[in-house]
Structures are given as C-alpha cells and as structure tokens.
Design a protein around this nucleic acid. Sequence first.
DNA 1: GTAATCTGTCCAC
DNA 2: CTCGGACGCATTCGG
DNA 3: CCGAATGCGTCCGAGGTGGACAGATTAC
Length: 1020
Amino acid sequence: MPPKKRKFDEAGSSQRSPRKRVNAADSSQQSLDSFLLSGRSAQNKAIVKEERSGAPREIIIIDDNEEEATYSHKGLATENVDIAIDSTITFNRLGSHSHPNSPVHPPFDGFISNTREMSAGSETSSVLHNKGIPIKPETAGKSNDTQVFGDETSLVDEKHVGVTSDGNATMPLHSTSSHSLMSTPIASVSTNPVDPRAQQTIAIQIQIPPLEPFPNLTLNPFLFEIRPRSPEGHGTSACSYWTRGTPAPYSLLVHALVSLAATKSRIAILSILTNLLRILIVYDSESVLPALYLLSNSLGAAWEGIELGVGGSIISKILQTTTSITSTTIRNLYKKYGDPGDVAYYAVVGESSGALYKDLRKIASSRGEKSQKIRQAITERLLLSAVGSSWKSGKPSGQDSIIDLNPHLLGEEARYLVRTLIQNLRVGAVRTTILSALARAIVFTTSQQRRADPTALLRYSILASDCDTVRKVLLQVRKQDETGTSGTSKKSKQISKAAQTPEYLAAQERVQNVLKRAEACLRKTYAQHPRYDDIVPVLLREGIDGIAGENSSVGLSLGVPVMHTLGSPMRSLDDVYERLGPNASWTAEMKYDGQRAQVHAWRKNGQIKVKIFSRHLEDMTDKYPDIVYLISRRFDTDPFLDSFIVDSEAVAVDRFTGELRSFQELAGRARRDVKISEVKVAVCLYLFDMMYLNGTPLIQKPFRERRRLLRTHLPPSEPVVAGHNDAPTSSHILARLDHVESVEADEGREVVEEFWEKAIESKCEGLMIKLLDDTQVTLGDGEEDIEDDEDLETPKRAKKNGSSTRRKALPATYEPDKRTSAWLKLKKDYVEGIGDSLDLVPVGAWHGNGRKAAWWSPILLAVYDPAGDQLVALCKCMSGFTDAFYKELNEKYPEGTETCSKTSLWNVETGGYKPNVYFKPSEVWEIRGADLTISPTSATALGMIPQARDRGLSLRFPRFMRIRLDKKIEMASTPAFVHQLWRNQESKGQALGIGEDELVDVIEEESVEEEYESSSDEHK
DNA sequence: GTAATCTGTCCAC
DNA sequence: CTCGGACGCATTCGG
DNA sequence: CCGAATGCGTCCGAGGTGGACAGATTAC
C-alpha cells in the first residue's frame, strides 16, 4: 500500500514526534500526562518526551492509509504518529489492576485501535493476534462493524481495536508493577519490512496510571469525565466492558453497587450514583429508568402494585436446586453472613440491566396457578446466568457460561441479583440519595450540552467557566494528595486553604447552589409526583428546567399520590410549646389509630373516580368500597364539587355505636376485591387536610386556609347506613366521613391540656400539632430551605454567625416528604410514664441479619408465670439496643455454653416462637411498648382472652429501655399483669364516636351497589 | 376432588 | 411503626 | 488561633406486632 501524506519516516527522522493533532476538547488544565516516543534506529531513538497540559486521553496513530489507530487511555496524552499500515505493534506492558475478588489480573488496560476499514482477519489483526494479544472468541463472529477484534464487552469506540483484559487468555506480556511506568515502553511499532520507507521501529512509551476495568465512579463528578457521544455515534469509553451501541451491561450496575457497598461516606455514595447515571444518560439513556428502579428496590411506582413474590425462601430453594450446595451449608452461610445475597456470592455474570429489568417484570406479572413455579423458573434462570452454567459442576469460572461473565465482579452479580430479588439492596442509598444523584447527573449532562450550545440558557446549569475553575482546584488538591508525603488532615486543610481564591470560592458557591437547587427541585417534584416513569423522560429531554416551571407536566395530579408530610416526634406538651413559641397559632388534632388514607376524587366524563392511597402510596381503593361510595355520594350532593385530594385517617368504628375500635380490628378488613356488601368492619374517615380542590393545588397555601376549604367543601357526612347486610333489626353504620377533632392553641393552654388528657384516655395515639399560619420559630438552626423558584441571580445568603437564636421561617404549607416543625406528633406511649412498661426476661435469640450479623437479634423476651413457675415468651425485641450492648450480649451468651444453648434447657414456654438459641434466664430488662395485642404466636395470658381463648398477648412496638439490675427473674412481669394492662387498654375510649341517635336511615341496597360499581370500574 | 391447613409474601402500624 | 449508627455541617470549646 | 469536641439534621437499615391473600400441600 502506498504511503500517504503522513509517513513513518517523517516521524522517525524528526526529533520530536511527528505531527500531532491536538484533541479539540483539550483546553482545560489537567495533570501533566506525559508520553514518550522513541525510535529504534539511531536517528529515531531519541525519546520524545512531551508534557502537555490538558492532554486528552488518546494517542492517535495514523497509518499509511491515513487511517487512525488510537491508543486510548485515561489520562493519556494524544499524539498522532504516522506509521505504516501493517506495522507490527507490540505491547510491552500490562496493566496491573486487580480486583480483590478476581483471580485474574487484567493483562492490558489500554488498547490499540485501528482503522475504520480494518476488518476481522486483516493483516494488522492477525499480526496482533499472532503476538498473542487476547481476542475474545465471540468478537469476530458477532462484530458486524469495522471493529477488528475489539473486546465485545468494551465500551470503546467502534474504531478501536480493543485489547482489553480477558482472564482466560494467555498473555504473552507479563504484568508489571504499575507504579514505575514512566519509562516503560508500552508498545513498539515496527514498520513493514517490505516497505523500504518504513524500515524503522518506534517504541511508544506512555505514562499511565493503572486502568480500572470499570470507571472509578467514586471520583468527584467534576473530575469524572464523560465525553459526549459524537454525532456519528462514536464516542469514547466509559468502561471497558461495554460494547458501544448495546444496552448498558448489568455488570456496570453491579460495579456501581459494589462501589457503593465499599463506602459509608454519603459524599462518595452520591458521587457514585451521580457518575453512574451520567454514564447512562450519555451512552444509554433508555437504561436510566430501569437502573433507577433497580437501584431503589422496586420495579415501578408503589401504587401500581407490582410485586415480585420472591422472598428469601424461594431464593434458598433455588440455591439448593441450582447448586451442589446443601441446605445445611446454605443455612450456615446465612447464619454467618445474614444476607441471602451474600449466600449467593459465588459466581459471576454479566447481563444487560434493561434485560434484567424485563425479566423481573415478567416475574412480577406471573399470577395464578403454578405462578410460584413460573416465578421460580425465571428466578432460577436468572440466577443461573448470574452464576454461570459451570457453577453446577462446581467450577466457579464462567468460562462456559452462556452469558459473558465479568471476571472483575466475581460473584457480585449473583449477590446483587439476589438482593434485588428480595428487594433489599442495602448499599446505603435509597430514595432520597438516588433523587439527589439523579438531579446532579442531569445538571452535569445538561451542562455539557450547554457547552456545546452557548445560546442555550438553562437555569439549572453550571457555567463552563465555573466548572473549569472548580475542576482545576480539585485536580490540584488531588495531585497534592497523591504526591504528598503525609496524608494528614492538616495537610488537606492547608491545601484547601491555598485553593481558596475568591474566584474559586465564588465559582464553588455558584456550582453548589445550582446543584442544591436542582436537588431540591427534583425532590419536590418527586414528592408531588413520585413516579420515575413520568419524570425521567422530561429530565432527559429538558433537564431540570423541564420539571421546574409551573407548567411542568409532572406536578400534583389526580390519581397520582402525593408523598405525605411527616411529623417530628415530641416528648411532651412542654416541648411543643417550647418548640413553637408563645405566639404561633396552631391546632392540636386527635391522632387516631388507624390507617392513613389519601383520597383522590374527580369527575371524568360524567363519572366519579375515586382513588385511595395508603401511607406508602399503595393503592387501597379496593379495600374501601364503602369510602368510595361515600365520596361519590358527596359529589352527587354537591354539583360544584369537581375534584379534590384530601388527607385522612381511616379508623375502625363500631358498626352500631360508632365508637372507635382498635387498629387491630381495622387490619382485619378484607383487602382485595371487596364488595361493599361484604364489608365487615365499619370505618370512619377522619379528614384533616386538603391538598387539591377543583383543579387548584393547595399545598402552597397555609394550613388554616386548606382546613377552611376542607371543612366547607367536605362537611362531615351523616352516617351512611346500609340495610342490605345481615344486620339485625336496626340499621348499622357502613362508613362515615368526619373531621378530626381538634382544639386551637388560641383557646388557651388549659384547653389544650384537657384535650391532651382526652387523647390519653381514648383509643387515640396522641396528638398532632400543626401550624395554622406561616410563622417564625426561634431556634439556633442552620437549616435553609432552598426553594426552586428562588431567583437564579440571587446568591445564597452570606454566612452569618453570632446570633445563635436566629428566627427561622416556618411555613404552614403542605410539605410532602418533609419532616418539619410545622407538624409535630405527640405520642402518648412516649410521654406517659405510666403502665405500659414491662419487666421481661431474655430467654432466647436469633442470628442477626445484615449489619447485625455478628450479634444476637432479635431477642426473645418472656414474662414470669408464678403459677407454673415458668417463663412464658411474650415478644421479640430488636429496638433500643446499642452496638455496645450487643457486644456485651455476645459475651454474656456465647453460643454453645451453659448460658446459651441450641436446645431449650430451661423451663420456658416459647409458644409459637422458635428462636435459634435459648438463653439461660438470668436477668430482667425493662421493655416499653405502645399497646398490647392479641397474638396468635405468644403464649402469654393464653386462655385469658374471652373472645379468643387460643390466643395470647404480645406487645406492639417493643423497645428495650434498660437492664433492671434490681430485679430477679421471679420479679418480672406476670401474665396476670399483662392481662390487666390489656383490659385497661380495652376499656379506654368508650366516649368517643357518635351516638346511636345520630344514625340515619337505610339506603337502598341497589343504589349502593350500582353507584359503587360505576365509580370504581375504571380503576382496577 | 374438595376442604382444611400450611407457608410465604406483602402490607399496615 | 421503632430505634441507633454514621455522616456531614456548623458551632462552640479548650489548649 | 486552630484543632477537637459537641450538637443537630438527615439518611439508612436493622427488625418488632398482626392480618389478608394466594398458592402449595395435606387430609379426608
């Protein structure tokens, strides 16, 4: 082939490297990567060492056909070198990265790429091949682009000829220590001897840091570079295990999860997620949504009711059938690690996360007969692929796996697949963190777009100049960290101080401001419309700006539940007064013990639609046909009522007297496909807030206004009575609508105190205290609400110190998903010093899970029954123990000693509890709980409950308070005592509810049924 | 084959 | 629902 | 004066109580 313009000998004769093309993106000041070029002949031997700032990351080698060959690497300088087309390229050095779990040292961490016209089997490829550079077998067959033998799994540009790690290939090139790379030739290129013009050889020496097989996601996002996709779809690599144009591999996600699990730092976690999402946004935006779901332990919005139906038990079964592992081994592993995912930590897989997501949805959608078998089959297949088919034969290697296994993630895919299946990823990131990361990722990527298009004016965008300023300092800091002799905090402080130029500080503040505002904006949006499916497309299309404006398509909407406002717990009424100050106007509402119900109702095409959502945003509409009926009846009465969203508590009430009933009774209601005629437990819906009315969102309005609208538009209903049941002669209540009972702070403290007493004496949990108007609170509190509609130009308030008692604005708006001081909850079980504290004896325990894997948790607790002189188990307890206490327990009750036995050696009746180990009863603990419950498990007070002789009593929300050193086990609480407490509890609250005389007459059965059907048909 | 019971999962607090 | 732990930030304390 | 200590808010994940439901299994 005739040489073209750029010839090798030009390069060779030149003292310096031949012509170079500087990458256009090369403008920022980066670390001074250097590389060396040297020729072998006398002339050309001169090593050309070049140091340039802002070096891009690849060397482009131009061959005689003027095709480009690229050596690409992180932190590598770019240079163009003319070489002959069939030059022999020899690699002299291997990367040395090794994953702690990998037996394989990735042999080479860069790659020589060749030209567009190169195809499999071409000369160069064979030359390289002959040199023993590993080639993945599937590549040649599968590759249908110009890639010669680029690693199938590499995410490099198609043009690149990948020479990446492959654990199974024999490498002729040995791995060397990675840290003295400066003068180690990485490759030498010898020209075709046939071509007289190319009788020279060059050696290319490049300084490279060890390359990770996956990108280091922990990097500060400002230093984590993702180059945008070029117009033709070419781009640069994000990780070496991802073929361009294919969906993001599951292994990338797993890599992120592994990175997450390796740290506890919130900052690092946020960075990892941010960088992962940035990669996906740029390279495979379709994977963003599945990734978000996979990261958040869910497959869809809560109210869509997508359930996997796969739990630890099925996993365990599959692990047994799929592997040669025995059930005892599994049990032991589980005992040891306390995590089913860790149990599955044996093998390796790579699979597209998008594909995985689809399989999971498939599992979730399987219903009916044998569905468990189907679920099991799919799960098994997934796990098998996550494990490699060779697993069965005992080989941990994934060599013959149907799926490309990733040697760097040995076992991790299986681990996280299992954790995904049981929906407990436990990597230190759930919803809020993911949202923050998503917001940041969007900002970073849209900023990139902005760079490309300076005319675009985006509010949620980082200025390119600010970005550069920040990055520059970060690089400086990093460099000093690397070169620094001591890694003390002192040093880093000095560095940061040195970096604190006014320009930097200003840029940093602007940047942080944008990020914080973007986070706040997304979180706010999500709180009002918690559905990734709706949010993500907008974000990808328009960035944060797309969800910021008033006209955003993802705001408060009928049919999509709003996240709830949360209340801060208070320990006493005094605390409440102290917190809110003397001047604030607030109301105290009765906190009923029922189930939160967010009701959406609206007219549509002449029909009335009603949706009821639970606290966790599950769709509970089917559970409350009576409420649905009640609501639609309200629409009939009020023709001007068009739509609303209200917040309320559904409480079980006596169907005849209207008295409040226990939570346990409410829980006894049927849940699925409930017919209105079959409702057994009557409910009253206690309304307390209104977020939306007749097309207008109200959440920005103060509570006083919202409450007024609620009261005027949804007055308490007359009790609805249905006569179509098997009711006796008189009518009985079916459902009722009311407002929560409340008093105002204005009425004076005495009234409030009295109300509080009433709450204590009732079946209610306590009080909710809510601000009525926007106000100010005096508190030395640094919190700063970042409003998304804050003016962009407005810089953040300068830091002020001094006045520790600063006044903080406290809005009385409805703040979804926020725990503010605007809502305070005062729970009686915490305030009361009385009764519900029990003295119990620890008599057994289970092996803890997760972070408590090394400890006993939970602990089985018992009462002392003097009648039979034995201990009777009451409940388990896991709350209230400190880590130190767990450690003490380990010492006090070591397994297999005379204080802790696998079999029951002592006189203990455990009822339905089957602890892993039994403790020798020897101490008394004070345990607190909220209520006593009738229990199918506990044997305490068995036979003493009139309505359920076969049941015992147990404790709701048990928590450990302290050890009672002063008590012997015979002095522990007795079954009789527990029984008495229960009776006291049951007799409470007889006065609340409505009286018999308030009952109204019967409604025709037909009309009830009919209206119910019509109103609920559409939302199944 | 139907009914009763068991088991696992999910959901409420 | 419960709780404690861990982190990160801001402020105060103490040598 | 600067580093250490302390306080506070936030986030996370350990796991408690009971009950319904659906499918699988067993009893008759």
